[in-house]
């Protein structure tokens, strides 16, 4: 089995670390279950206001996913408050309601999993989206879902832990299911659900790297995201 990149550091010896884990997991139940044991001290740097640092190693990748899930969850929460949703068809109401729950669940999962290594809440900026317009909402949803899939597909190779890779795999296929449904709402009954704009001649969906994803996301995020320590 593949191991974490991160090596134990500082004063805590291996034996003591193990002991620490046993105590720690009992007292901090619920928060940071996944990472508290293997955490890198580097990831504990205090964040400046208006800026987050994703950190390094698997922690950094999970924070990257957490940032994207924050963005998606915030978007669907906003959708459900707008007049597009209020007047939407029953099918679209169900889909938007489901997506809001799925993305909120993803966000809360990463927050719990990352524990004290989690970045803070991102400040979003949806001023470019008209939440009363079906076209605007579905267009933004398509952007977010397609971006999420490409981001997970591109980041998978940098995860060291097979456990985290599996978790990412469990989430990315659901994002792809979302993306296909949103695309079908925009252009019903067409081949757009898996269009040539995102799938190449080998039948492979596009991948995007950290820079591409965070540049695309930056339209919707005010908080500065420092991803300079992510693996490459």
């Amino acid at each position: 089995m593949k191991k974490e990149l991160i090596k134990p550091q500082g004063l805590v010896t291996n034996a003591n670390r193990r002991q620490f884990l046993r105590v720690g997991t009992m007292t901090v139940a619920g928060a940071g279950l996944l990472l508290m044991g293997c955490n890198d001290d580097d990831d504990m740097v205090p964040t400046m206001p208006g800026k987050v640092n994703l950190g390094s190693g698997d922690t950094g990748i999970l924070n990257y996913a957490y940032a994207l899930e924050q963005l998606e969850a915030a978007f669907y929460a906003e959708v459900m408050k707008g007049s597009y949703f209020a007047n939407a068809s029953a099918e679209e109401k169900t889909i938007m309601g489901d997506l809001e729950k799925h993305e909120r669940a993803h966000r809360e999962f990463f927050k719990a999993a990352l524990g004290t290594s989690a970045i803070g809440a991102l400040e979003v900026d949806f001023s470019s989206i008209d939440f009363s317009s079906r076209n605007s909402v579905l267009g933004a949803a398509k952007t977010f879902e397609d971006l999420g899939v490409a981001a997970y597909n591109g980041a998978g190779q940098f995860l060291e832990s097979p456990d985290f890779l599996l978790i990412a795999g469990k989430i990315v296929s659901v994002e792809a299911r979302h993306a296909a449904a949103i695309r079908d709402l925009i252009n019903p009954g067409s081949a757009d659900f898996a269009g040539d704009d995102i799938i190449d001649a080998n039948g492979l969906e596009r991948t995007l790297n950290f820079t591409e994803v965070l540049t695309a996301a930056s339209t919707y995020v005010k908080t500065e995201i420092d991803f300079s320590s992510l693996p490459s």
Partner: peptide, 18 residues
């Protein structure tokens, strides 16, 4: 191989959803 497999995996998920 991992990236290719992931890139096929999400295409299958799009098919399934549709």
């Amino acid at each position: 191989v991992l990236t290719a497999a992931l890139s096929i995996h999400s295409v299958e998920a799009r098919h399934a959803s549709m």
